[in-house]
Protein backbone atom coordinates (compact mmCIF):
# COMPACT_ATOMS: atom_id res chain seq x y z
CA UNK A 1 0.00 0.00 0.00
CA UNK A 2 1.23 3.48 -0.84
CA UNK A 3 2.44 5.34 2.21
CA UNK A 4 0.96 8.80 1.93
CA UNK A 5 1.25 9.79 5.57
CA UNK A 6 2.98 13.15 5.69
CA UNK A 7 5.96 13.67 7.94
CA UNK A 8 5.19 15.81 11.01
CA UNK A 9 6.65 19.30 10.96
CA UNK A 10 6.58 21.13 14.26
CA UNK A 11 4.32 24.16 14.35
CA UNK A 12 2.55 23.14 11.15
CA UNK A 13 -0.84 21.53 10.61
CA UNK A 14 -0.80 19.87 7.21
CA UNK A 15 -4.13 20.70 5.61
CA UNK A 16 -4.96 17.24 4.27
CA UNK A 17 -8.07 15.16 3.74
CA UNK A 18 -8.59 14.55 7.44
CA UNK A 19 -8.36 18.26 8.28
CA UNK A 20 -10.44 19.25 5.25
CA UNK A 21 -13.17 16.88 6.47
CA UNK A 22 -13.00 18.22 10.01
CA UNK A 23 -13.01 21.84 8.90
CA UNK A 24 -15.40 21.70 5.96
CA UNK A 25 -18.23 23.74 7.46
CA UNK A 26 -15.89 26.16 9.20
CA UNK A 27 -14.10 26.78 5.91
CA UNK A 28 -17.42 27.05 4.11
CA UNK A 29 -18.43 29.82 6.49
CA UNK A 30 -15.16 31.65 5.89
CA UNK A 31 -15.51 31.15 2.14
CA UNK A 32 -18.86 32.95 2.36
CA UNK A 33 -16.93 36.03 3.57
CA UNK A 34 -15.97 36.73 -0.04
CA UNK A 35 -19.25 38.68 -0.05
CA UNK A 36 -19.69 41.87 1.95
CA UNK A 37 -23.30 41.10 2.87
CA UNK A 38 -22.10 37.87 4.53
CA UNK A 39 -19.29 39.65 6.37
CA UNK A 40 -21.89 42.09 7.64
CA UNK A 41 -24.24 39.28 8.70
CA UNK A 42 -21.40 37.75 10.71
CA UNK A 43 -20.55 41.09 12.32
CA UNK A 44 -24.24 41.61 13.20
CA UNK A 45 -24.72 38.24 14.87
CA UNK A 46 -21.70 35.92 14.92
CA UNK A 47 -23.43 33.21 16.95
CA UNK A 48 -26.35 32.92 14.57
CA UNK A 49 -24.01 32.98 11.60
CA UNK A 50 -21.84 30.18 13.02
CA UNK A 51 -24.92 28.10 13.78
CA UNK A 52 -26.24 28.62 10.27
CA UNK A 53 -22.96 27.23 8.93
CA UNK A 54 -23.06 24.20 11.28
CA UNK A 55 -19.85 24.94 13.17
CA UNK A 56 -19.07 22.53 16.01
CA UNK A 57 -19.12 23.87 19.56
CA UNK A 58 -15.30 23.66 19.64
CA UNK A 59 -15.02 25.67 16.45
CA UNK A 60 -17.45 28.27 17.77
CA UNK A 61 -15.40 28.60 20.95
CA UNK A 62 -12.17 29.05 18.94
CA UNK A 63 -13.88 31.87 17.03
CA UNK A 64 -15.12 33.47 20.26
CA UNK A 65 -11.59 33.21 21.67
CA UNK A 66 -10.06 34.52 18.41
CA UNK A 67 -7.67 31.55 18.73
CA UNK A 68 -6.36 31.06 15.21
CA UNK A 69 -4.08 28.13 16.03
CA UNK A 70 -7.09 26.34 17.50
CA UNK A 71 -9.07 27.07 14.32
CA UNK A 72 -6.25 25.44 12.33
CA UNK A 73 -6.28 22.40 14.64
CA UNK A 74 -10.02 22.11 14.09
CA UNK A 75 -9.65 22.01 10.33
CA UNK A 76 -9.39 25.64 9.32
CA UNK A 77 -7.49 26.34 6.11
CA UNK A 78 -5.31 29.45 6.05
CA UNK A 79 -6.83 30.47 2.70
CA UNK A 80 -10.26 30.88 4.30
CA UNK A 81 -8.92 32.05 7.65
CA UNK A 82 -7.46 35.00 5.73
CA UNK A 83 -11.03 35.99 4.84
CA UNK A 84 -12.08 35.60 8.48
CA UNK A 85 -9.11 37.76 9.53
CA UNK A 86 -10.18 40.39 6.99
CA UNK A 87 -13.38 41.00 8.96
CA UNK A 88 -11.26 42.14 11.90
CA UNK A 89 -8.83 44.08 9.74
CA UNK A 90 -5.99 41.68 10.63
CA UNK A 91 -3.39 41.31 7.91
CA UNK A 92 -0.93 38.43 7.56
CA UNK A 93 1.63 39.98 9.91
CA UNK A 94 -1.01 40.47 12.59
CA UNK A 95 -2.22 36.87 12.43
CA UNK A 96 1.36 35.65 11.95
CA UNK A 97 2.13 37.22 15.29
CA UNK A 98 -1.04 35.82 16.87
CA UNK A 99 -0.18 32.29 15.73
CA UNK A 100 3.51 32.38 16.62
CA UNK A 101 3.11 34.07 20.01
CA UNK A 102 4.60 37.40 18.97
CA UNK A 103 3.41 40.95 18.72
CA UNK A 104 2.96 42.20 15.15
CA UNK A 105 6.19 44.18 15.50
CA UNK A 106 8.07 41.15 16.81
CA UNK A 107 6.70 39.07 13.95
CA UNK A 108 7.81 41.69 11.41
CA UNK A 109 11.26 41.74 13.03
CA UNK A 110 11.41 37.93 12.82
CA UNK A 111 10.62 38.10 9.09
CA UNK A 112 13.18 40.86 8.55
CA UNK A 113 15.83 38.90 10.45
CA UNK A 114 15.70 36.26 7.69
CA UNK A 115 15.46 38.80 4.87
CA UNK A 116 17.75 39.45 1.96
CA UNK A 117 17.98 41.88 -0.94
CA UNK A 118 15.95 44.66 0.62
CA UNK A 119 17.60 47.81 1.83
CA UNK A 120 14.49 49.35 3.38
CA UNK A 121 15.62 52.68 2.03
Amino acid sequence: MTNYKMKDIEGTVHFDGEMATKGFYFNKMCYSFNHEENRQAFRDDPEAYMTKYKLSEEQKQAVRDQDINRMLELGGSIYYLAKFAGIFGWNMQVIGGMMSGRTTEEFQAYLDSQGRGKNNG
Binding site: I9, E10, G11, T12, V13, L81, M99, S100, Y110, G115
Partner: peptide, 13 residues
Protein backbone atom coordinates in the same frame (compact mmCIF):
# COMPACT_ATOMS: atom_id res chain seq x y z
CA UNK B 1 6.76 31.46 3.11
CA UNK B 2 4.50 30.02 5.75
CA UNK B 3 1.32 31.88 6.58
CA UNK B 4 -0.19 29.43 9.07
CA UNK B 5 0.48 28.06 12.52
CA UNK B 6 3.11 28.55 15.21
CA UNK B 7 5.80 28.15 12.51
CA UNK B 8 4.39 31.12 10.54
CA UNK B 9 7.04 33.52 9.29
CA UNK B 10 9.74 31.05 8.30
CA UNK B 11 11.79 32.09 5.24
CA UNK B 12 14.76 30.37 3.60
CA UNK B 13 16.82 32.62 1.33
Amino acid sequence: HQLDGPRAGILNA
